[in-house]
């Protein structure tokens, strides 16, 4: 008898959270006709990401409910929908960067949709000619510096190799960080086959190669080093939320690698019309909210931005690698990079 008492106690205790958090949805999303499920990376859905602004506005405008699900980082989004291939739950996925376009297309899980909004979006942002992924914001990788420590910022990638920056640069690991991957591709875009010699020379100047942008940039704002790889738009945050111009972008005339983030509709979705409305909304009404929370450039030129964005200089030259080339060489680049950097 005691045994049963204990078992039921355990059961009861484990059901308590169910009672406490019971306000969550219990019915499967698919059973509600007017609801779409949107997968997005974590920082999109978080409290201070675009999600909490965009979703209610969309719901109010269209009357379509949105079930926003946070799925780790950008790479995991694809992994997730691939895992669920036989039991698809999502209608829309938000947050594929241009560098995994190839993999997204190969998966064959997404359907092409040429949103009418695309006509207003500049040509250079149409990174997917098949319109399977549609751009919703973009940015450029750049080194950000601390004006309290640096008066004359570096003017190019070569400048960064100067011994005066010894131990003063924070980089990110391309194997674990999209920003790290961005810098790797940037060097390839500039130097081509010879990119590794830049990496060999930057080593002594590197304070640390952080696992992710969060920790790397965190170290930078803590004053651990005065230079960090980030986005041209990063200073905007400090102006908007901290009212300081202390952090500035170092603009390189040789150009900056661009990253464009896109969204797509799943073929398996039973709510194609609603999903399209959501994409349209993302590319129009949601643009300002996305730009100010993601701190990226909006794709829609009509977007009115706060003054703070003047702190983010748009680079003269925006570089991009071919998606197929990235897919083909990514592993090789990483292996070579690890070989050089782990010596």
């Amino acid at each position: 008898m005691k045994k049963h008492a204990i078992l039921s106690l355990v059961l009861a205790v484990s059901l308590v959270p169910a009672a406490i958090f019971g306000q969550g949805k219990t019915e499967s999303p698919a059973s509600i006709a007017n609801e779409i499920t949107v997968y997005a990376y974590d920082s999109f859905t978080s409290e201070w990401g675009p999600g909490p602004l965009v979703v209610p506005a969309f719901e109010q405008k269209t009357g379509i409910k949105v079930n926003l699900v946070s799925v780790g980082n950008g790479g995991e989004l694809l992994q997730k929908v691939l895992l669920e291939k036989n039991n698809p739950k999502a209608d829309v996925v938000v947050g594929f960067a241009n560098d995994i376009l190839h993999e997204v297309l190969v998966s064959g899980l997404f359907v092409s949709y040429r949103s009418p909004e695309m006509d207003r979006i500049p040509e250079f942002l149409h990174f997917d000619p098949s319109f399977t992924l549609l751009p919703f914001n973009y940015g450029n990788f750049a080194f950000v510096y601390d004006t309290q420590k640096i008066q004359v910022p570096p003017q190019s990638l070569e400048d960064l190799l100067d011994p005066k920056w010894k131990g003063k640069v924070i980089l990110m690991d391309p194997r674990t960080s999209s920003v790290g991957m961005g810098l790797l591709q940037w060097t390839i875009a500039i130097y081509g086959e010879d990119y590794l010699s830049w990496w060999k020379k930057i080593k002594p100047n590197t304070l640390t190669i952080a696992d992710g942008w969060s920790s790397g940039y965190g170290l930078f704002t803590q004053g651990e080093a005065p230079l960090v790889i980030s986005y041209t738009t990063s200073p905007v945050y400090h102006v908007m939320y901290e009212d300081t111009q202390r952090y500035q972008t170092a603009v390189f005339a040789q150009g900056h690698l661009a990253v464009i983030e896109g969204a797509g509709i799943l073929k398996s979705s039973a709510h194609q019309a609603q999903a399209r409305l959501f994409i349209d909304f993302l590319l129009s009404d949601a643009q300002e909210a996305i730009a100010t929370t993601n701190i990226m450039y909006p794709v829609n030129p009509d977007t009115v931005l706060p003054d703070a964005f003047s702190a983010a200089p748009k680079p003269e030259v925006s570089l991009m690698l071919d998606a197929d080339a990235i897919a083909k060489n990514r592993e090789k680049w990483l292996t070579e990079w690890v070989e050089v950097m782990s010596r």
Binding site: L207, T208, I209, A210, G212, W337, V338, M341, S342
Partner: peptide
């Protein structure tokens, strides 16, 4: 390892 180690040499 990731944050304090300072790079891929300490994998």
């Amino acid at each position: 390892m990731l944050v304090l180690g300072g790079g891929p040499q300490f994998t």
